[in-house]
Design a protein around this nucleic acid. Structure first.
Lengths: 208, 208
DNA sequence: TAGATTGTTAATCGATTAACAATC
DNA sequence: TAGATTGTTAATCGATTAACAATC
């Protein structure tokens, strides 16, 4: 991993998409694939694929293509997926409960290690194999585990205060499922999963 | 709406974000706001805000700012949110069930009018106030209602066949919650909500 | 009028794509 | 060797930002 200067989010997200496809090829015992071939299924240009990889090194063989096993391993290493990452989830409503059990996170080696709510009726209840914790215990658990990433799916009006609170407790990265823009210190990374705006966007183009 | 040439998705998604904030101001009885002021809460540059609006017309008053009520109405009109849009949802697992009841869609005037599954144990059961339909009835219902948009949250291995199937039945736009790239005719709009890749991306930057 | 803020143009920045020499 | 495909550079494209004349 030599020339990691300013890798864009777009590149990182595509690497995850490449990795998924490589995993599928791996299962099918396909050994080698070209940039032309892999990208034809992913709505990406072959040169885009090669450029994305070029930020991190040389992984192919000219005239041949890429060794599937090898490249998958390399991307896992680039993304740091080798060792499991623990995160917390705050707000165990219907969406939160679904995310606690979402298998897509496990596939990138992310584990929801604890989930929190403030509703006394939920605290102590089970979601899958997990027990919902009182949000008041978040500080203790964050400190004990060193977890730095949180998934937020509380009601929208609570998002800002909850975010501020957990940032004080040591959280440095937030995946925000609420339809609001969180205003937080620049040192905190926030990614938004804005389901309504995605759907609104889709509908806009469809109407034209 | 004069010069609508090539409006980018980024612009449309930001319009939705602006509208949310304007709605909040509306509730607080705030009458006028400047581009400087509104964008300070939204991680957007004032010039970006003005440029986004400029694709659709002139909505402000120089030296003064924007009338909140007026601008909110204008953006609703631009986005076509005035009349309700019906969509279907396919795959009523935990995530699907959460989405059926997700209030964020209602706020942009989108209604999930029907939901489908193929599991006989689910068909006929209720999710909120809705009854889960047999996917076999999708054609009939799509034809009867003229619905053109679908939300897909089936297991990942079923995403491609399900997508192909509903496209044959008349669906023209898909909001895809599964971690896979759908390969469909160019005439079909697809937006991906890739929760794992968002989280993976966040973690990548946090590790550095 | 003087001050404020828009709407728009021009400059900048960054991401995507095309092209091709290197090389398997 | 001849054909194929990479890795990388240069060209293109598009989105963001800065600057400022217009004007409330």
């Amino acid at each position: 991993m030599l020339k990691e200067k300013n890798i864009s989010s777009e590149t990182i997200k595509r690497l995850i998409i490449y990795l998924r496809y490589l995993d599928m090829l791996r299962k099918r015992k396909i050994k080698v694939i070209s940039s032309e071939n892999i990208t034809s299924y992913l709505n990406v240009q072959p040169s885009q694929f090669r450029k994305d990889l070029s930020f991190f090194g040389e992984f192919g063989k000219r005239g041949v293509g890429y060794d599937v096993e090898n490249l998958a391993g390399a991307i896992e290493k680039i993304l740091g997926l080798e060792d499991e990452i623990d995160v917390i989830l705050v707000g165990v409503g219907k969406l939160g409960a679904a995310l606690v059990q979402y298998s897509g996170f496990k596939k990138i080696n992310v584990r929801i290690a604890a989930c929190f709510d403030k509703n006394p009726e939920k605290i102590g209840a089970r979601v899958g194999s997990m027990v919902i914790e009182d949000i008041k215990n978040a500080g203790k658990i964050i400190k004990a585990t060193g977890i730095r990433v949180a998934v937020i799916c509380v009601p929208v009006e609570e998002a800002q205060p909850v975010a501020e609170h957990i940032v004080k407790l040591g959280i440095k990265g937030i995946l925000n499922f609420t339809p609001t823009v969180l205003v937080l210190p620049g040192s905190v990374y926030v990614s938004n999963v804005d389901m309504a705006s995605e759907l609104g966007n889709l509908i806009y183009y469809l109407k034209k």
